[in-house]
């Protein structure tokens, strides 16, 4: 396995099931401080399930520790309160509510006005378009803008680690590049990121390490620097 910085998020023997169906075989998974870790694989590989298991959104077994302390296994509210924030697949924005309200709810637990403003400023710096649409219903914006809102809302929670489930889903390539570029900026500012992504080449450009899953099992842990071509990536996929 590739060497990594001291782990900030560490899952051991983490598995998950939907009813009687095992969707994720036991897996060890680590994210180091300041890392951007990609989780790759085809449809049905268990990528989203891995994130949902970390958050405690699905029935799971195993251990997950964050910053050295165990995370509650069936309490996503408590997990979020620890700074582990997920931008879910499909964005999960509150469609009928305005952009402003969506962002405010990201900072639901924050009481200080100055800190709230600081977070707003940071989000608007990253996504200036949101500032122009504050009074607009989130659900009436384009897919790309909704994704910006979902990430912006997550940032309002001041995450200690940001997990994203297929942020490029349904977006035009140009918008995807814009979103991924912003994730790169966030990561370079020190925020650890876990990125579940089907567009492997783009994800690998950003990632420090990548986990490749297939049929609910870990297939490989990849060092992106060792992946020189699409053919080599395809070899990993079809190995």
């Amino acid at each position: 396995m590739t060497a990594f910085p001291s782990p900030i998020l560490e899952a051991r023997n983490l598995s998950a099931r939907y009813g009687q169906v095992q969707a994720l075989a036991p897996i060890d998974f680590q994210v180091g401080a300041g890392e951007l870790v990609a989780v790759l694989g085809p449809n049905g590989a268990g990528k989203s399930t891995l994130l949902r298991a970390i958050l405690g959104l699905v029935t799971n077994a195993g251990e997950v520790a964050f910053m050295g302390a165990a995370l509650p296994r069936r309490n996503p509210v408590a997990v979020a309160s620890r700074g582990v924030v997920l931008v879910p697949e499909g964005r999960g924005i509150f469609g009928p509510m305005t952009v402003m309200e969506n962002l405010e709810l990201g900072a639901y637990r924050l009481k200080g006005r100055e800190e709230r403003q600081r977070r707003f400023d940071r989000v608007f710096e990253l996504f200036p378009r949101l500032k122009e649409r504050l009074g607009q219903a989130g659900g009436s914006m384009s897919g790309g803008e909704q994704q910006m809102l979902a990430i912006g809302r997550a940032l309002m929670a001041d995450p200690k680690i940001l997990l994203l489930d297929e942020p490029s889903l349904g977006l035009a390539p140009r918008v995807t590049d814009e979103i991924l570029e912003t994730l790169g900026v966030l990561n370079r500012s020190g925020l650890p990121v876990v990125l579940v992504e089907q567009r492997a080449p783009q994800a690998l450009k950003l990632a420090h390490r990548a986990y490749l899953l297939s049929l609910g099992r870990l297939v490989a842990v990849i060092d992106p620097r060792e992946v020189q071509s699409h053919d080599q990536l395809a070899q990993y996929y079809f190995a």
Binding site: L55, P76, A80, V85, G92, F94, G95, M97, L105, R153
Partner: peptide, 25 residues
């Protein structure tokens, strides 16, 4: 109000609300 908005958020998407740390219970 913050609580009122949180209740609306729970009504729209309970899981997404929980992921923001809103106490859905």
């Amino acid at each position: 109000t913050r609580t009122g908005k949180a209740m609306r958020a729970c009504a729209i998407n309970r899981e997404a609300a929980a992921l923001q740390g809103i106490p859905v219970h």
